[in-house]
Design a protein around this nucleic acid. Structure first.
Lengths: 154, 154
DNA sequence: TACCGTTGGTTGACGTGTGAACCAGTTGCG
DNA sequence: CGCAACTGGTTCACACGTCAACCAACGGTA
């Protein structure tokens, strides 16, 4: 470990800082949603996508694309959310293989209450600390990294 | 959802970019370690800390501090790692409550092989795309966000 | 010295994520 | 038309994370 070519001082510092920022941020936001709104981050994202879709309804595989989730994960999670009355699943009429997922009244109420509070948290935890230039830099970096990763995994 | 005060265009773009960069990066690095070295990210981090400690040995609670893990998580994970022969646990002589965790020969071999490849991945996926100024900005932002979070949760 | 609060760790129950196997419906092609 | 390949989903087994309850050892104070 100690004898391998490692990152230099500045790189190591930046990497650690980024990783812990990421952890802390995710943990804070998850906990807020969970404790205040009774939703996991996963629940929140499912409901957010559904509530933005026309009629609060999406084909299951389309939802999976938007969330970038494995299909088994989506299936398991929707099953749990259905049991809790947050969404309704029914076989699609257009394609008998598929399923339509619809947000329930209860799901709508929950996401409606949770969303503005979540946005406020994101502001308080992140954007309030950033200058416009820093914001721009973040976007630039993220774009480059994402592009690079796409090339690394063909 | 659509009628609540939301983030502005630039903020939304930055936030999405940061979140997906984070997801992609984590997923790429995890998958590399898992497929190539047969270790989860959690395994890797435990072994990395142990291998850097004198004698490859740490008190369990100290390891927990370094990893910032809940104690139950640490206990469960060390149990699994012990079953796989990666670490050895024994009651501490100094304090009969505590446990000493020692990296095994097998654990040492694995982390020794995995570490340089992981560093190379981090470079390829992240640092190779960044200027010195961007690196500096990252560190600055992460510091400010971390500080802000500390104030938000007293 | 005896007791009580604290500390270090383990356990059990449960929610969550992944990969592989599987299944039914659909599509393409001879 | 008939059948193989593909698609959309589910299920199973397992790894992982969190919380709450628990337990034994330690440490300070009456």
């Amino acid at each position: 470990m100690t004898e391998v070519p490692w990152l230099d001082e500045g790189e190591q510092q930046a990497w650690r800082a980024l990783m812990t920022m990421q952890d802390d941020l995710a943990e804070f936001l998850d906990r807020q949603i969970r404790n205040r709104d009774g939703l996991s981050k996963a629940d929140y994202e499912v409901l957010a996508h559904l509530s933005e879709a026309p009629g609060g309804r999406l084909r299951s595989f389309r939802l999976g694309e938007l969330l970038r989730w494995e299909k088994s994960r989506l299936s398991q999670h929707l099953g749990r959310m259905e049991n809790r009355g947050l969404v309704i699943r029914e076989r699609s009429l257009a394609d008998q293989r598929g399923a339509d997922v619809t947000i329930s009244r209860r799901g709508t109420d929950l996401i409606t209450a949770a969303a503005p509070r979540h946005v406020a948290d994101v502001r308080a935890a992140f954007f309030d600390h950033l200058t416009a230039a820093e914001l721009q830099t973040i976007t630039t970096i993220a774009g480059k990294v994402k592009e690079g990763l796409a090339k690394l995994q063909p």
